[in-house]
């Protein structure tokens, strides 16, 4: 838990300093949702949560440092209906940077955007050595702003993580979250 708090504080500090340098609007937010493995027979659906910041570089372009903790669901291994055992799904800690392109500023109360990003992922699973590998993210989202400082966001993100030895794991992440905005409109 200490590690999560420290990393989150570092992330917010990074976002704040970067935004101050850029002289623009920025936000910090938290989110949670579902982690759904795609074409992976050995794990089930899991959950995820995380924190992120958004620094607006241009009215249509921003960058989002993010820290995500995701879990895979456990999977029962069966042979002709007989349960051989349950395989633990394991979890992934991801730290990355997404580029966000869309209607990100102005007076509209709704923002639409697409995103693409890179990240570093540390995977842990019983009986498999831990590994830290490169990942890529691609997605889209929508954010509603009921006030000048708060945003409510829903997004879908494909998160692909490479594996040591070859291949990779692709996940669909569906999340909802809250953002708090700082800086000039």
């Amino acid at each position: 838990m200490k590690r999560i708090i420290c990393l989150s504080m570092m992330l917010f500090f990074l976002v704040g300093v970067s935004s101050a340098c850029a002289g623009g609007k920025f936000s910090v937010g938290a989110f949670a949702g579902l982690n759904m493995p795609l074409v992976q027979e050995d794990v089930g659906n899991g959950t995820l949560y995380g924190v992120k910041g958004r620094i607006l570089l241009l009215p249509f372009l921003g960058v989002e440092p993010n820290l995500v903790f995701s879990k895979y669901g456990d999977k029962d291994i069966k042979n002709d209906g007989e349960l051989l055992g349950t395989r633990k799904g394991g979890d992934v800690t991801s730290f990355g940077l997404d580029a966000v392109v869309g209607t990100l500023s102005g007076f509209s109360s709704t923002h639409f955007y697409g995103l693409v990003g890179v990240n570093s992922n540390t995977s842990k699973r019983d009986a498999v050595p831990d590994q830290t590998r490169l990942g890529l993210a691609l997605g889209a989202g929508i954010e509603f702003l009921p006030s000048d400082v708060f945003g409510i966001e829903v997004r879908a993100r494909i998160h692909a993580i490479s594996l040591e030895g070859g291949g990779g794991r692709n996940n669909l992440e569906i999340t909802g979250g809250l953002n708090y905005y700082f800086g000039p409109m």
Partner: peptide, 24 residues
């Protein structure tokens, strides 16, 4: 960072089309 991001994406897409299967 945009050219850097595109470079990483272009060089690292091999695992985007990968799946995991189980044989019993």
């Amino acid at each position: 960072f945009l050219p850097l991001l595109l470079l990483v994406l272009a060089s690292g897409c091999w695992f985007l089309l990968s799946g995991t299967w189980v044989i019993i």
